[in-house]
Design a protein around this nucleic acid. Sequence first.
DNA 1: AAAAGTCACAACCGCTGTACA
DNA 2: ATGTACAGCGGTTGTGACTTT
Length: 248
Amino acid sequence: MNSSITKSSGVRKGAWTEEEDTLLRKCVEKYGEGKWHQVPLRAGLNRCRKSCRLRWLNYLRPHIKRGDFSEDEVDLILRLHKLLGNRWSLIAGRLPGRTANDVKNYWNTHLQRKLISPHRQDRKCKVSLKITENNIVRPRPRTFSSTKNIVSLGRNDSNTNTVDKDERCKQISTSTCDNPTADDGVQWWTSLLANCNEIKEVDESPSLLHEEISPTINGGISNCMQGGQISGWDDFSADIHDLWNLLN
DNA sequence: AAAAGTCACAACCGCTGTACA
DNA sequence: ATGTACAGCGGTTGTGACTTT
């Protein structure tokens, strides 16, 4: 990581210095996140906007958790990855303090290896893994209100456009999990499914979850409850089964 | 002790989706 | 309807740290 590397355009590349970090931090604190194209100018950094954004998101943002992933976190990653595939930002969104880059790196260095060669034991990770190939939920666009209001989804909106379901999941998650708690992931699933049910009720279009949702979701989530995080998971998984039948 | 191999992670690159004129 | 700019994402790379031989 050569911090002195400079692009032909004159933009700095490579590792960030303390000084650059300070400038970026102050800039974001002053102007807030977003408008990343303006950040290099505002902060007086000779970096591209992508570099600034990444540095902030992955390193400078407050409350970023460092160090090893807990067993719970690993478990959640595995289950979410089983369902969502390489949607690192979505997965990271369910892991408070973890960034998409963290999750991706952890997956690539720790977990994927187990998929490829399960016999090989990781030196650090003690979590026993049983990973099976499953169909991945691949969000597909569908039409719904451009207001992006979850409550009014599919209801009497003449103005429609296509929006990735992920975005809606994010909305769902942010609306219910802004202050992540220990059962954060559980809440997310609950709200996701609740929302799916709601949408089914208000919108008879069968295309909402037209992705290849595997029935194994049922088993996966049922397993997810084994940590004693919450009671009544039999009902929960039964609901999922109902949902699955409904969607089919 | 040194060389080779492996790991961990920060950072970059290219692509896609979205907003807006 | 189209083009452009921007934001964000996932894949990949580079390199220092660590471990093994």
